Simulated assay, not measured.
Amino acid sequence: AVYRVSVNVQRFESWPGSHALIDAVWSVRALDSQTVMTCRSVIDEPVGQGYDALVEGHRDAVDNLAHSIARGLRELSDGRTKGAPLRCPVEAHSPG
């Protein structure tokens, strides 16, 4: 199957020495279906001092967002084959 993924970033915050945050609304849809899964992910990664730590925090946040979307895509795929209700994935946060 072919899927379309859409991501709308609501917030992208950088707080050096504190956190890197991404707040995004995303959706996945199989092109051969009208079924759409729309979810929101708020990913807040703690970061240390300095810009290198901030960049790493944003990298981790984007990685977690990508994993959430992948889990959503699998959920949509499984739901289509099993007829189960769709549930947005729970965010995975890396330890501080």
Rank of each mutant, 00 (worst) to 15 (best):
Q49M: 11
Q49V: 14
Q49W: 10
Q49H: 10
G50M: 04
G50T: 06
G50Q: 05
G50Y: 01
Y51D: 15
D52Y: 06
D52W: 05
D52S: 08
A53H: 06
A53F: 05
A53E: 09
A53Y: 05
L54W: 00
V55Y: 12
V55G: 05
V55P: 00
V55T: 10
G57C: 05
G57V: 00
G57H: 01
H58Q: 07
H58F: 14
H58C: 03
D60L: 15
D60H: 12
D60N: 12
D60C: 07
D60P: 00
A61F: 13
A61M: 08
A61P: 07
V62W: 09
V62H: 09
V62E: 06
V62P: 02
D63S: 15
D63K: 15
D63H: 14
N64W: 02
L65E: 01
L65N: 03
A66V: 10
A66I: 08
S68W: 03
S68V: 07
I69A: 00
A70Y: 06
A70K: 12
R71S: 15
R71V: 09
R71N: 14
G72W: 03
L73N: 07
L73V: 08
R74W: 09
R74V: 12
R74H: 13
R74I: 11
R74G: 05
R74E: 13
L76W: 06
L76G: 02
S77T: 13
S77F: 10
S77P: 01
S77I: 06
S77E: 15
D78K: 05
G79Y: 04
G79W: 02
G79F: 04
G79E: 06
R80T: 02
R80A: 13
T81N: 10
T81G: 08
T81L: 10
T81V: 12
T81F: 12
K82D: 13
K82C: 10
K82A: 12
K82F: 12
G83N: 04
G83W: 02
G83S: 04
G83Q: 04
A84P: 03
A84C: 03
A84S: 14
P85T: 00
P85V: 00
P85F: 05
P85K: 01
P85D: 02
P85H: 01
L86C: 04
